[in-house]
Design a protein around this nucleic acid. Structure first.
Lengths: 222, 222
DNA sequence: CAGAATAATGAAAAATTTTTCATCATTCTT
DNA sequence: AAGAATGATGAAAAATTTTTCATTATTCTG
């Protein structure tokens, strides 16, 4: 992954770069707003980290400029703790996310991944087999018609599609779909899964979600 | 708006072009797949209409190629009636929508607008005032926290935000948010509106949706 | 200003979704 | 193959959302 770090505080920038390298990514550091605009015209970045306060052009201004030029690379703004109400200003300027300093590397990596995930979801559709999940209408598209999903069913299916082919434990479903830290004492997961399976199978005449005894589930489309 | 029509059946292409012109748009006609790739490298289109069957490169192949090159212009595939199962194939190839021939001009215009609307929604957020509607989580982002909206509340607010500053009649709300052709005999709109207003006002301490007596509503953010 | 038209509201009814629970089925282990 | 662990299922309960309805408030018209 190609990452642009626009940050004039040397230690922060260097530390980020080192960490990105360790994860197998490539990062370039620039120290003011104008350099960002120059660099962007030369390299196609996967994500841009913009410090809010920077010499020449602020992160916010750079962000607005980039968007005005039609650049749609994901942007995450880095801001100081004290300006709390900046969040919306950032989003208004066209940033995709916003993180307050100080932050851990894990934190920023998580944000980057979340933004990239969202960014890829731009597709509107997550295809599987001869079908597709429409992320806007939250329904399954069939060659003829569509199945409407409930919210939980939708989130469950989306999670499966984003992890197609991987074994998914009940725990990660609880965490990601139900936002529970601990395993629930009931079988909500199984019940929702049953309903999702029923909806899918009744129409597609196929079984997509396989159970792996003692491990979890796996989504197989092709 | 700049529209590329890739269609080798002259009458269809010409008729489309004429209609687009009448609506104040600018359309260019090309007749085979290779011409599409050439033209796209010269002109920045707002939307591309691709005939499924074309000389040299099929619409599907062109679509895949464009996406592979990183081009993300909205694409609508035009297909013949008989290939019904193509829908998903089209979406898989990276098309944004799909329409079967024969189609009326109104139909294709509606699809184009829908695709463009979706495309603009890529933003993830629709900002208003110091707040923003998160289109993925379907909740309102506040400087501190968020308000979860029900499905209808969400669709209502989204519609207002997409038409910020315009007077919106009860009829268009019925049509766009509730997909009703005729005005309902009940006051669903008012009730949902009341609930949305309550949620917004209770937290933001501001009134966003103004009533215009006898006309409809208007959303004012700033 | 009175009466009519248009909106807003509270509360109940209907529909849908989410969760719980008890029971049944399947798979694994020995 | 028997017993234990794990997963599936139907149906009821709880919670939420959507819609309806009756009543109250507001705005416009003459």
């Amino acid at each position: 992954m190609e990452i642009l770090i626009a940050e004039d505080e040397r230690p922060i920038a260097e530390s980020l770069k080192k960490n990105f390298l360790a994860e197998g990514h490539h990062a370039i550091i620039v120290e003011d707003g104008e350099e960002v605009l120059n660099s962007v015209s030369k390299i196609l970045y996967d994500v841009i980290l913009l410090d809010w306060r920077m010499p020449k052009l602020s992160g916010l201004e750079v962000c607005k400029k980039l968007r005005a030029f039609g650049n749609c690379t994901p942007i995450i703004l880095l801001t100081a703790l004290n300006d709390i109400s900046n969040k919306v200003e950032a989003l208004n300027a066209g940033a995709d996310d916003y993180i307050t300093k100080p932050f851990s590397f894990d934190e920023i990596m998580a944000r980057i991944n979340a933004v990239l995930r969202r960014f890829q979801q731009t597709t509107t559709y997550l295809p599987f087999g001869d079908f597709a999940l429409n992320l806007i209408t939250r329904s399954v598209e069939l060659p003829n018609g569509q199945i409407k999903l409930s919210e939980k069913e939708f989130e469950l299916l989306r999670f499966f599609l984003l992890n197609k082919g991987a074994i998914i434990s009940r725990e990660s479903l609880c965490e990601k779909v139900w936002s529970l830290k601990c395993t629930p004492m009931t079988n909500i997961v199984e019940v929702t899964l049953k309903n999702l399976r029923k909806k899918l199978e009744s129409v597609t005449k196929r079984s997509f979600i396989k159970t792996i005894y003692g491990e979890g589930y796996i989504f197989i489309a092709d």
